[in-house]
Design a protein around this nucleic acid. Structure first.
Lengths: 229, 229
DNA sequence: CGTCTTATTGATGGACTTCAATCTAGGTGG
DNA sequence: CCACCTAGATTGAAGTCCATCAATAAGACG
């Protein structure tokens, strides 16, 4: 597949004309990866950032005893590690593949040159960084104030807003990730996620079958999500 | 005082020549504030960002029942709320003054114009956003993995690296904020901070007198900070 | 010197982690 | 086709950390 249409998929490169996209394509390096592969680790020297074309990735911080907190799941069309090479030149998190796929690598120096020539590149990057910052601020708030039930409810609602089908006020959605990964994103243990799901079932708010979730009472789920422990 | 030298204080505007600074000064609005004043609240429409000249501010998220988590303390020379007006146009946190002072307001539209004309503005902003992102990633990690003792130790070490005097391996530092504010930054309750300080005293790691801290055993403090509960 | 805010301390309960055992589902090879 | 294997998920029991409530103590300040 041609590069330019792939680049267009990203929010980060919207609003660019064909000439800009061509100069972007000129510095782009394609990189495919296998399931389970680590693209980069926390602390690695950051020589550029990425745009995910296909597959599924997570960005996470890993504690010294091996537990991990997922900062963000990356889906095709999203850029990631944009923050990386402007601070101290090291990646602040680890990137690991949940499903095999392909990413486009945008080298630091080349992209810097583009930004100097065309402010639109920099403006888009600023927008993208702002969005990440907002997401992180929200995560910090949730970790500080909200209990696991509330965070799980928030997750389900977000997931429903991304992809779900509704019928008669009942919403069907897929988790899209293993429950262990979900736990790592919520900042808790897998066991706790199990127990919390069970509580939601017992209260008649959801049904659960594997990774398939049926939301029976969206109102109460919303209440849970906003109620701050 | 003249505007231009004030602007120069900020990392964000380093590397700008006099002409750039002049055009920046042209769009800058001065705003002074009293102790306890709220410059903006979470969700307010964001029409620009700020550079703190004097005084002391905190940026925080407030839960529905009034508890707050301090995301960051802002000191003179720092910019804040840069993330604000590039996302959905709302401030993602609340800004409240701990000490009276003055800030420079950089309006959105004016700054956008500058960025379009001169990429250096945008590049600096990208760097600044990246640093915030890195800080947030670290906070998320700490909230997820580290207990209060570890987070407090990290805080003391950071504080020591900013401002302290050392003699014979013993380090003297000032908290610089009330313990209640410290608790809000660590994401815990004031009572827990008290108890954790006491534990550190009982173990002979620190001495405490009001806001003055004496670190007797920096090694063990480091261990506490890195050990991920 | 009283008043108001901030800090400390004790007691209690709840939420979550951890360890360990069991259960389930999906994939593989005999 | 089915038994087996393994990774993931669930459940139970025990213990830890922390929040909360309530009461006291200590500073700050007019």
């Amino acid at each position: 597949m041609e590069l330019v249409p792939l680049l267009k998929n990203s929010l980060l490169f919207s609003g660019l004309n064909d000439a800009d996209l061509a100069s972007l394509a000129a510095i782009t390096v394609r990189r495919s990866f296998a399931k389970g592969e680590t693209l980069f680790s926390e602390g690695d020297e950051a020589t550029g950032f990425y745009l995910l074309v296909s597959g599924h990735l997570k960005l996470c911080r890993v504690s010294s005893d091996g537990r991990e907190k997922v900062l963000h799941f990356v889906r095709p069309g999203e850029t990631f590690a944009e923050a990386a090479f402007f601070g101290d030149g090291r990646y602040p998190a680890e990137s690991r593949a949940l499903e095999a796929g392909e990413a486009l690598f945008l080298p630091r120096q080349g992209f810097m040159n583009l930004m100097e020539k065309n402010p639109q590149f920099a403006l888009n990057l600023v927008v993208s960084l702002s969005l990440s910052l907002r997401r992180f601020a929200r995560q910090i708030e949730e970790l500080t104030f909200a209990d696991v039930a509330s965070r799980l409810a928030s997750f389900l609602i977000k997931r429903a807003s991304e992809q779900s089908t509704s019928y008669n006020g009942i919403t069907y959605l897929e988790l899209g990730i293993k429950k262990g990964e979900l736990a790592a994103q919520l900042g808790t243990a897998g066991e706790t996620v199990s127990r919390t799901f069970r509580k939601l079932k017992e209260e008649g708010i959801i049904e659960l079958d594997g990774r398939k979730v049926t939301v029976l009472n969206m109102d109460r789920l919303q209440q849970l999500a906003t109620r701050q422990a």
